[in-house]
Computed example of a mutant assay.
Amino acid sequence: MTDTTFRSTFPRQLRFWAFHCSLNALPSLYIALFYMGLRNNPGAIAAMAAAIGTFILLYATLTSLRGPLADGGHILSRSLRLGAKIRGWISALSLLLIWTPAIFFTPDTWCGMLAMNIFNHLAPYAGYTSTFGGTPSSDASSNFFPVYSVTLLEGFILSFLLLLVSFFSILVIQARDRREFFSAARKQRFAPLRNRSPLPPMAKRPQKASQGPPAE
């Protein structure tokens, strides 16, 4: 793909992924702002917005570079878009459950908790003392880097779920395309038989006139 093609494709992909990444991030953003109390923390809000922007640019770039993801007719590109739409429906459903106890059963809640646990386990190895859920003086939710890192981790986990959805989408698309291919091949195979003119009816053999009894 030439640079001109990238410049013409990137804006369209940027709009597509800006919408879907923002929609997919809304449940997690809502949980962080209102359930974790980060709505009054400008640094945390900026960190989450920066992480969302990172994923938008990442997806827009990957789907604009030369390869199957940039080919709208390729099965990988089709399945990725289908997976993004399915994930969007899941996010919309999660938003409907945001003020109910069922919110704790949504993927965003579990992925966010998993991301914070991963950060808490890896932070000491990097010499970072702030963790999530610690004392107020060592709470990592008040710093830019921990919130940005956890948001990225959660995004990668959710992206893995999107990959799983895309994988099953590939199976569905392949099964449908295979069925359509064999159906078209079957029609093409039997088309000459259907178009062949019917055989003329077999002529009946003329019967001999019955002879009467011999004259005396």
Rank of each mutant, 00 (worst) to 15 (best):
F160M: 07
A140N: 02
S94G: 11
L152F: 07
W17P: 00
R66S: 11
L199T: 12
L114V: 14
G37L: 08
C21E: 05
G43C: 08
P101N: 07
A115C: 09
T5F: 03
T61M: 08
N41K: 05
N117C: 10
A191C: 07
S94A: 14
R66C: 10
F168G: 09
F119L: 04
F167N: 06
P27C: 05
P136G: 06
P107M: 12
A18I: 04
A123N: 06
A92Y: 09
S142F: 15
A32T: 03
P11F: 04
L29W: 07
W89R: 12
I103P: 06
V172L: 15
H20R: 08
A203E: 14
L199F: 06
T131G: 09
A50K: 02
P136A: 11
R12K: 13
P101Y: 05
H74F: 10
T63F: 05
P27K: 00
L164F: 15
G88Y: 00
L29K: 07
V147T: 03
P192L: 02
L153C: 03
G127H: 09
M202F: 05
F181I: 11
S183Y: 08
P213N: 14
L14F: 13
G83F: 00
G112Y: 02
A209N: 13
R205K: 14
L58M: 11
I86E: 02
Q188W: 10
I118C: 03
R205N: 11
F16I: 06
E180K: 05
S169N: 03
R7N: 12
F160N: 02
G212K: 15
V150L: 05
M1P: 15
M48A: 02
M116A: 06
F105C: 10
L33W: 02
S137R: 14
G155Y: 00
